[in-house]
Amino acid sequence: MHSHWNLRQTTTIKNSLSLLLHPLCLLPSPPPSDPSFSLSLGLMASMAAGSISLNARPRQMATAVKGFSQGSRSNLSFTLRPLPTRLSVSCAAKPETVDKVCEVVKKQLSLKASDEVTAATKFSALGADSLDTVEIVMGLEEAFDIEMEEDKAQAIETVEQAAELIEEILKAKA
């Protein structure tokens, strides 16, 4: 399909082009998320000649825009994708924090020392109900000398999530 080809072409070029974006911003610029803009960037790159102006191919741009708007795809924007950021955050908890959290969880649920609690452990997997979870959160607040917001505390399901939230709060406090 014609429009489909256009889409793929543009996205691959866009990926390789992302670093070049700054100098190109000197052009009379529509908003960066505008599909026609990214397409024309792609065309310019593939031509490899700097003499082609943005307005040189109005018809092609127009058809391309039509194709994109039909597909309602949003992956042509130049904004950063949220996924990598989230991943980097989820690895942020320090092992000491995780260990301390595990300790508090074990104490709070009166688990045996032999019971294994790791970062990925879900509280519910340890037999904790929602009341236990509140107790764990309160115990954590005391152990780390912090206050957790209720909405955020209620969303905690795993040791790792707890450790992340704690570090976030500690960082904000420092």
Binding site: K122, A128, D129, S130, V134, M138, A153, E157
Partner: peptide, 23 residues
């Protein structure tokens, strides 16, 4: 708890419980 989402009333109960523990 787990993946299940809590109802408003359950949240109220938990919030009350938290209040008691704080007190």
């Amino acid at each position: 708890m787990g993946a299940t989402k809590l109802s408003g009333m359950q949240k109220q109960v938990l919030s009350l419980y938290r209040g008691f523990l704080r007190a």
